[in-house]
């Protein structure tokens, strides 16, 4: 099946896309539709599962198998499908409210189990479908319909949460850079196990410009810190800034000229310990400071579904395939002879 050649049209459904004009979701959908033919899979073997929220309409727009489920539960439903059907390419799509608030529990457990899923977390820091309440990633003090005096909640950093759950693959990208999105999605899809990609996504109706100070073309050089495996973590128009780890183990932004090139951290996404990746995720406390994007972590860890299958196979190898008649006679029994 993987040799089948498809075009982006093969992956687009006949359903009219119904996001608000200008929504960041359009560019994410386009990136996925363009990427799918390059990945070599088929629509028949691909499943998109979503929860509830604007982004969760995603499956309707792809001509694959899909399920638009209930709020927060997509990672749990996808876990069942991926464990039952290892042959499928299962994607999970949802927003920050869906996967970090009502479904936060399912997300962290899918990540820690390392279920073979590609999870796209659309983070727009707002509840869009319910028309503008603050979300678990909204900044403190945010004034919304439900927080007229400003929100009090300390926000989640999705990458930190994923690393805390020891996800084997964690990346961040944003909706203004199709090439970077496609590269992150490709890496996530090619990763065996649970792969989470946080996508900074603009909600132009309820939270317009939330990421503009870091993702606009004029700001990117100074505000986005690209993480590239095996290379020093540097940014700025002339790569004049970089990241070091100080004596306390904290990541710090420095001028390269001040510390020397050799002091700059060389990014290693394959470090077994998630600690350093976590420190990188703490560099920015919100999208108004220089923020790392790219692959934070990509480590090999046995995925859940194949281990489940291995247990079934080992049991069958040991004692042969299950025999119902033998099972029903496996406990102490007695005979009653015909009278």
């Amino acid at each position: 099946m993987s040799s089948t050649i498809t075009t982006p049209q093969d992956w687009a459904s006949d359903q009219e896309v119904r996001w608000c004009p200008g929504c960041g979701d359009y560019s994410i959908l386009k990136a996925v539709q363009l990427l799918m033919p390059e990945l070599g899979g088929t629509p028949a073997n691909t499943v998109f599962i979503s929860g509830i929220g604007c982004s969760s309409r995603f499956p309707y727009y792809l001509d694959t198998y899909g399920m638009h489920s209930i709020h927060g539960r997509a990672p749990a439903i996808a876990t069942g499908l991926a464990v039952a059907r290892e042959d499928l390419d299962v994607w999970v799509v949802g927003g920050d409210g869906d996967m970090l608030s009502i479904g936060g529990n399912h997300l962290i457990h899918a990540l820690r189990r390392n279920v073979n899923l590609t999870i796209l977390l659309f983070n727009n820091q707002i509840y869009g479908l319910t028309k503008g309440q603050y979300s678990p990633t909204s900044e403190v003090g945010k004034v919304t319909k439900s927080t007229p005096f400003g929100s009090l909640d300390h926000p989640f950093n999705p990458v930190s949460v994923a690393l805390g759950a020891e996800a084997s693959f964690v990346a961040r990208t944003h909706d203004m850079d199709r090439g970077h999105m496609m590269e992150m999605f490709r890496r996530a899809r090619e990763h065996r196990g649970a792969a989470l990609v946080e996508i900074y996504q603009n909600c132009n109706v309820f939270n317009d410009g939330a990421f503009e100070s870091i993702t606009s073309r004029s700001a990117r050089d100074d505000m986005l810190i690209p993480l590239v495996h095996g290379e020093p973590v540097r940014f700025g128009a002339d790569k004049q800034k970089g990241v070091t780890i100080d004596g306390q183990g904290r990541a710090q932004i420095v001028n390269v000229a001040d510390v020397g090139e050799e002091a700059i951290l060389v990014h290693d996404e394959s470090r077994p310990d998630p600690g350093l990746a976590f420190m990188l995720s703490r560099l920015a406390s919100g999208p108004d400071e220089p923020t790392p994007i790219g692959v934070f972590r990509a480590v090999d860890r046995p995925d859940y579904g194949s281990q489940v299958t291995a247990q079934l196979e080992a049991a069958t190898e040991r004692g042969g395939p299950g025999d119902l008649d033998a099972l029903l006679h496996s406990r102490p029994s007695w005979e009653v002879a015909p009278a």
């Binding site: 489920s69 749990a76 876990t79 499908l81 464990v83 529990n105 457990h109 489940v308 299950g322």
Partner: peptide, 21 residues
């Protein structure tokens, strides 16, 4: 050996959710 997959989920909702999947 009967090919039965059992999944101890993180909660009751994930129990039925995974079954639906």
């Amino acid at each position: 050996s009967f090919g039965i997959r059992t999944f101890q989920a993180e909660d009751e909702i994930a129990g039925i959710g995974s079954a639906i999947g």
